[in-house]
Design a binder for these strands. Sequence first.
DNA 1: TACAGTTGGTCAAAATTAGTCCCATGTTTT
DNA 2: AAAACATGGGACTAATTTTGACCAACTGTA
Lengths: 339, 339
Amino acid sequence: MSDFSCYKVGRQLIPEIDVLLKKRFRILQAIHAAGPLGRRTLADFLHVTEREVRNETTLLHEQQLIEIGQKGMICTQLGYEVLEQLKPLYYELSGLAQKEQQLAEKFGIERVIIIPGSFRSEASRILLGKEASKWLVKLVQEGSKIAVTGGSSVAAIAPYLQPVDSMPSVKFIAARGGIGEEMSLQANILVSQFAKACHASYKTLFMPEFLSEQAYVAMKAEPSVQEIIRLYEEVDIVLHGIGTADEMAEKRGSSEADKALLTEKGAVGEAFGYYFDAEGRIVHQIRTICIQPEHVKQSRYVLAIAGGEEKAKAIEAYFKNAARQTIFITDEAAANEML
Amino acid sequence: MSDFSCYKVGRQLIPEIDVLLKKRFRILQAIHAAGPLGRRTLADFLHVTEREVRNETTLLHEQQLIEIGQKGMICTQLGYEVLEQLKPLYYELSGLAQKEQQLAEKFGIERVIIIPGSFRSEASRILLGKEASKWLVKLVQEGSKIAVTGGSSVAAIAPYLQPVDSMPSVKFIAARGGIGEEMSLQANILVSQFAKACHASYKTLFMPEFLSEQAYVAMKAEPSVQEIIRLYEEVDIVLHGIGTADEMAEKRGSSEADKALLTEKGAVGEAFGYYFDAEGRIVHQIRTICIQPEHVKQSRYVLAIAGGEEKAKAIEAYFKNAARQTIFITDEAAANEML
DNA sequence: TACAGTTGGTCAAAATTAGTCCCATGTTTT
DNA sequence: AAAACATGGGACTAATTTTGACCAACTGTA
């Protein structure tokens, strides 16, 4: 699966396959991703008419790519194989492959993966979760130490992590303390979920986000904190999201004065607790224990996850000054915004 | 062009491409073969409705695979390339590739080429001519001596022979004298046509078909006849047709007694002036000067051309005892009959 | 039991396609 | 020169397919 020459020739005689392939691929992919579901749900999901879904699914059923039960439609093994084999072609057709390439070059990083659609939609977040989990499994080695930040994008991975042979020896490490009230999206919660999902161990770092100078120094001297700082130095893989500056400030419940200060300094994005401006320069950082940029640069791989058109500017800024060994998973909406 | 894996996977999602590809390929091929021609003519040609031709040709036109002028439709360079590249796929889809293989194995010969349709139709004969001429050019070498028999199938090549670099040194040799009245299909006429078409030289053998024993012996002693017999021994390529026994007897104006004799001996087919039975055994031969079976077997290549369902039995019989180095070009009608 | 979600069936309306014929024009043959 | 022929493009009605929107029966689940 790498040579589409016969497809490209065939397309000259049968131009309609392009749209057909895309349509059906999307539907099959959605069925595969969203498990058993019915016509109407699927139609809402993909923003197409029920009729269209019905037409295509009956065909997919005839082709034995899906099974139809009373709980809804489900993707067969054959369907999954077709999906896997046609994925590069689909990406090619949708121009996603090209956009991935362009972004990777623009940012000067290892690889960019674009998920069709927008992370705002359920469908894309499912695909995101599967894709990110696939990469994580691919990158992980015996005894890997994985630093994890919070955020909804990173959280999307959780449902799709599965135990793998090498997994019991890996360790998930909270890259920093929690933020705001959304407990379920905190780094601490996520590492425990991840670890549980794949039978690995984990290390949390419970600590307030805003510390006074004295408290900060005092905490840093604590043995338990010393230990996690040492761990940060040995991190193999960093798994993190990227946020917009105002969104993060909002979530952290920053004061109006602080927000104004951030704006004044030109902060547009946030990652690992660091705010950076449009040029990727760090303009502010939270005084808390967290993984340091130099640790990130030293790690073997960085898996960055962020999507949604509203984050486009923050992402572009972040990658002005990011680790080369980054693999970035984003969505079509953000990718289009950035190109 | 040899790996259709992506096509085969894609077909699972888009089963309709099969029929579409076949339909459009046929139309494009016909336009390419039959030169500039109009909708209605083309429709008759392919036995489809005018509407269908119209639909497909407008599409082909949009795809710039054909051009539409006032003399009719004509295949563009791009169209020709698509045609060439998709041909193996088309053969695969139509099952022709498989049938070719089966026949080649059944007959124990080098290669079988099946032309879509039936040689009775103009369209197929044009394709036959082009294909056969392509093979002839491929097989020919500097100084090749090519023995040629008569018949409508062999005659179909003439319009498509073109001068090639090595051609001036080759020599076309009439494999035997003329038959019947149809001058234009006689071996003698054909060799001169062929030679003229590709700027080669030729050798004719004008002689009655039926000789008395004395005349036969006398003729054989003639220096000019001796010369051509010597040429037969040095033939590199044999280009011949295969006929049914009764058809040939009819053409030769044989007497009822002779016909009865042939029937009695079980003759079903004819080639090079030899009649053979269902087992490929020679049961009768015309007393005239012509190329000998052993010369044929010694030649580098044999290009046999015969089609039409009525010839199926004769063909099968002939190949019971034919040279292994034969390349056989036939039509779909005969192929289906034989399988 | 009530409910939310599923498939498969149905059916009229809308849209598309198929099947013809015609015509002005250019080409070939007479 | 004239006539016969073949061409693409236009046009229009009938037939067919597609669409959109229901409803009934069924099945797990709360």
